[in-house]
Design a protein around this nucleic acid. Structure first.
Length: 884
RNA sequence: GGAGAUAUAGCUCAGCUGGGAGAGCAUUUGCUUGACGUGUAAAAGGUCGCAGGUUCGAGUCCUGUUGUCUCCACCA
């Protein structure tokens, strides 16, 4: 036992040591154990390029709390960690790094690049894991996985082939979002819309064979070169006569038709729309309906291609400028109007995406979405908070086919091969060597790789060994809860759910616990560009992981954002210090005290009160945790420890340690202090793992770690409701005395003689029993307990509670007017309560319709307030008489 | 355009199934009591956005309304 604990808690010397010990003891490791119930959470895999940020810290803390809680409850609790290869993020990062070294990615070639990428992963991929460990996360690191490891890659291939064979994966020419910087297609979910100030260019398209023209308005004049029609609404009388006629496309020698399509909004712009099927998703659809040619005018880097005549080779914006100038010279530019519109950008690099027609692989979503939708309706899947289920449903109901191919090297290569001789497409788990159609051996694998989310969608089961029926898969799958931010529902949660149903027949988890964003103190999103991010590791360094975890969890409600303040971390640190010092007090005073003879019967009332309180706390906190109310559970533990345990119980107990003699009483106090503290520490442990472990190990010898100790359970023999009530009344009496003293500016050093007047014998007994602490807490010199006012000075100051009045003779301090004012204020307050209570009890409908217990409760309140009122009025009358 | 969230003390936020408004920080005034001043005691501070409704009873449920925020869709 550490006897020389420092006065303030210093996490820095403790956290790493404890974490190492946990690792050595393999406490984080979860085994397949049929004698236990399984509980599992898969950790959202952070990108290997990532650094731990506040979002990770919050997300991980919540998971760690759930896992530690269940582990202590006796579950075989697996927290499955791992990292994500993050294809595009990583590829961009490595490409840039190579560039700095003067190496061009394309010169390296695919193999060379991948070699570099793997090297990079070896070097930096584990960085974030080390940071997670600093947070105290109890994930099963022995089971770490990587989305591109052998097993996960096997799962990816398996799923691809299965979906292909079912016809759910297809390859086709579609409009995709193309990132000209990353040179790859991206999915709809990766496009971020950003409001930009642009222009509307109104351009004339002359009618062939007539003098007139059609005026169109466009925000992207350069796409004119890819126009293959101009569309008008079929019901728009202004233009019906033009339908079917040809227009001369400016700056080219092409002629394009005027077509009618209901897609066109008559009210918007000029009511005439240029149709560019190769570079606009809507136009693509229109083009298909009218069999229009698709003319791609862009290279992959968004420069104009060789179909663009004099503009070929120009960047898209250069070409725009040049073309507008040329149109103006030709007299075809009518006007330029300022226009604010949303422009799609790539969420990784913020480049404006270009819609382009490309041959890509897609997942057909309609069938896959069905069971995922049903799950939320039939309750197999629930969101906490519930409202996010609506977001989920809305997204699924409007889901479009998922573009899964990426023109990247870092990632899972698409398991499709093309026969060089006959063009046959072969999709296979293993590399084929002959074409099944023509027998050729000249096969070329598709160069593309898969969207990162294709592999993360399988994470809950690929990490457990699927597609093999491993013991882990059978035991831990489906997992229990998925914890994530609301920003990731579309990218990830939905894809995991439909993949889970399709591949395993089950939802991969029954609950999705959603948390909000950690924002800066002004409520702004923490971001690199703003430079307002706070590094969780910096917080850990300064205040300890426990303090950070506590900060992130206090007042945290599911789905709600929170703001980060250093002041909040400080108050968390203060709480840690409080816990530390309470423990220090107990250890200092329990030395040499033999508690072996203590039984429930030898406890005093204050001990029973405390035991009963912590007992109910266990019940409440457990219920809250089961409902994922992590913030509420924490609040209860926090309040219990600080207020009830430290400010009341420890103070009540002190006299028993400082008086000589009465070993029995001291032993009872000692036992209760330790027992209650241990219970409270256990409940605090999921939130503050380090400090609770440190204290736990110093405080007792029976168990080797709080991590694997038993979670507190409610027990009937610790329920002392009656005693709780008694002590609460004693607390009330103490508070009343303190309030009176403060109002009279009596310093604690000035002890008073206190006369307690109580009619009821049981009340007098409570004061007798609690004499020692009552004296200490109420700053009393002598206490006399009696049934009436005999022998009390007429000018003694009174403090009133429901069933007792306490008198203190402070003749030199009494200011009658102030006293009257104080009592009148109290009288006013009580009058309000009485009015409310009487109002309810005189209400016939309340008496007849409210539950009986509520009525009884109210009657008891009325009685209490009435008693207090009587006393206050009596004192007032007395005072007024005296002061005359 | 569609959907959702939120509105509670000076600030930041809790408030579970409806039954006497809470915390932290900040503020005021005390306290060298032998765990802790990273402490302790007492206090001040709110018409729970606004208007209706349901109910014996609404911060809590319903409707409308206003402000703020977010997501989705997107009109060339």
């Amino acid at each position: 036992m550490a006897k020389e604990l420092s006065k303030t808690y210093d996490p820095s010397e403790i956290e790493d040591r404890i974490y190492q010990r946990w690792l050595e003891k393999k406490y984080f490791h979860a085994e397949v154990d049929p004698s236990k119930e399984a509980y599992s959470i898969v950790m959202p895999p952070p990108n290997i390029t990532g650094q731990l940020h506040m979002g990770h810290a919050l997300d991980g803390t919540m998971q760690d709390i759930l896992i530690r809680y269940r582990r202590m409850q006796g579950y075989s609790a697996l927290w499955q960690p791992g990292t994500d290869h993050a294809s595009i993020a990583t590829e961009v990062k490595i490409t840039n790094k190579l560039k700095e070294e003067g190496i061009d990615k394309h010169e390296l070639g695919r193999e060379g690049f991948l070699k570099k990428a793997w090297q990079w992963r070896e070097e930096y991929g584990g960085r974030i894991v080390e940071q997670q460990k600093k947070m105290g996360f109890s994930a099963d690191w022995d089971r770490q996985r990587f989305t591109m490891d052998e097993g996960c890659s096997k799962a990816v291939k398996e799923v691809f082939v299965r979906l292909y064979e079912k016809g759910y994966i297809y390859r086709g020419n579609r409009i995709v979002n193309w990132c000209p910087v990353c040179h790859t297609s991206i999915s709809d979910a990766e496009v971020e819309y950003e409001e930009q100030h642009g222009h509307f260019w109104h351009i004339k398209y002359p009618i062939v064979g007539e003098d007139g023209y059609v005026e169109i308005a466009t925000t992207r004049p350069e796409t004119l070169l890819g126009d293959t029609a101009v569309a008008v609404n079929p019901d728009d009388e202004r233009y019906t006569h033009l339908v079917g006629k040809m227009l001369k496309l400016p700056l080219t020698d092409r002629e394009i038709p005027v077509i009618a399509d209901s897609y066109v909004d008559r009210e918007f712009g000029t009511g005439c729309v240029k149709i560019t099927p190769a570079h606009d998703p809507n136009d693509f659809e229109v083009g298909k309906r009218h069999n229009l040619e698709q003319i791609n005018i862009l290279n992959d880097d968004a420069t104009m291609n060789d179909k663009c005549g004099k503009y070929a080779g120009m960047d898209r914006y250069e070409a725009r400028k040049a073309m507008v100038e040329d149109l103006d010279k030709l007299g075809l530019l009518v006007k330029v109007v300022d226009h604010v519109h949303n422009v799609g950008t790539h969420d990784r690099c913020k480049t404006t995406v270009e819609p382009m027609v490309k041959k890509q692989w897609f997942v057909r979503m309609d069938e896959l979405a069905k069971p995922a939708l049903a799950a939320i309706q039939n309750g197999d899947l629930q969101f906490v908070p519930e409202s996010f289920g609506k977001t989920y449903t809305h997204w699924l109901e409007n889901i479009r086919d998922w573009c899964i191919s990426r023109q990247l090297w870092w990632g899972h290569r698409i398991p499709a091969w093309y026969c060089d001789d006959c063009g046959e497409v072969i999709v296979s788990r293993d590399t084929p060597d002959t074409c099944p159609k023509c027998g050729s051996h000249h096969l070329t694998q598709d160069p593309d790789s898969l969207d990162t989310w294709f592999s993360s969608a399988l994470w809950p089961f690929s990490t457990l060994g699927w597609p093999d029926e491993t013991p882990e898969y059978k035991y831990f799958y489906p997992t229990d809860v998925l914890v994530t931010g609301y920003d990731i529902i579309f990218f990830w949660v939905i894809r995991m759910v439909f993949s889970g149903y399709e591949q395993t027949g089950k939802s991969p988890f029954h609950t999705v616990l959603i948390h909000g964003l950690v924002r800066d103190s002004q409520g702004r999103k923490m971001s690199k560009s703003l430079g307002n991010g706070i590094d969780p590791l910096e917080v850990v360094d300064k205040y300890g992981a426990d303090a950070l975890r506590l900060t992130l969890m206090t007042g945290n409600a599911p789905g709600n954002d929170m703001r980060f303040y250093w002041e909040r971390v400080e108050s968390s640190r203060n709480f840690a210090n409080k816990v530390w010092n309470a423990s220090r007090f107990i250890m200092m005073n329990s030395e040499g005290v033999d508690t072996s003879a203590v039984t429930l019967d030898t406890l005093e009332d204050s001990d029973r009160w405390m035991l009963s309180k912590v007992n109910r706390l266990a019940k409440d906190v457990t219920a809250n945790l089961d409902k994922y109310e992590l913030g509420i559970a924490l609040q209860k533990v926090y309040d219990f420890i600080w207020e009830e345990f430290c400010d009341w119980y420890i103070e009540m107990v002190k006299p028993r340690f400082y008086q000589s003699g009465n070993e029995k009483s001291r032993a009872a106090a000692c036992w209760t202090l330790k027992t209650v503290l241990i219970q409270a520490l256990k409940m605090l442990h999921p939130y503050m793992p380090f400090i609770t472990e440190e204290i736990f190990c110093n405080l007792q010898d029976e168990e080797e770690s709080i991590m694997v100790s038993k979670w507190p359970e409610y027990r009937e023999d610790w329920n002392f409701a009656q005693t709780e009530d008694t002590i609460e009344r004693m607390k009330e009496a103490v508070r009343a005395i303190r309030a009176v003293r403060t109002s009279m500016n009596v310093p604690p050093s000035r002890r008073a003689d206190v006369y307690v007047v109580a009619e009821k014998p049981e009340v007098r007994k409570a004061f007798e029993d609690g004499m020692d602490y009552f004296k200490a807490l109420g700053y009393a010199e002598n206490v006399r307990i009696q049934a009436d006012k005999t022998g009390i000075a007429a000018d003694a100051v009174s403090a009133v509670t429901a069933d007792a009045v306490m008198y203190m003779p402070f003749s030199d301090l009494v200011d009658a007017d102030k006293e009257i004012a104080r009592l009148e204020k109290e009288e006013k307050r009580l009058a309000g309560e009485l009015k409310r209570s009487n109002g309810m009890l005189n209400n016939e409908k309340f008496l007849s319709r409210a539950p009986k217990e509520k009525v009884d409760e109210e009657k008891a309140k009325l009685e209490k307030y009435q008693q207090m009122m009587d006393q206050v009025q009596k004192e007032l009358a007395h005072l007024k008489k005296m002061s005359k």
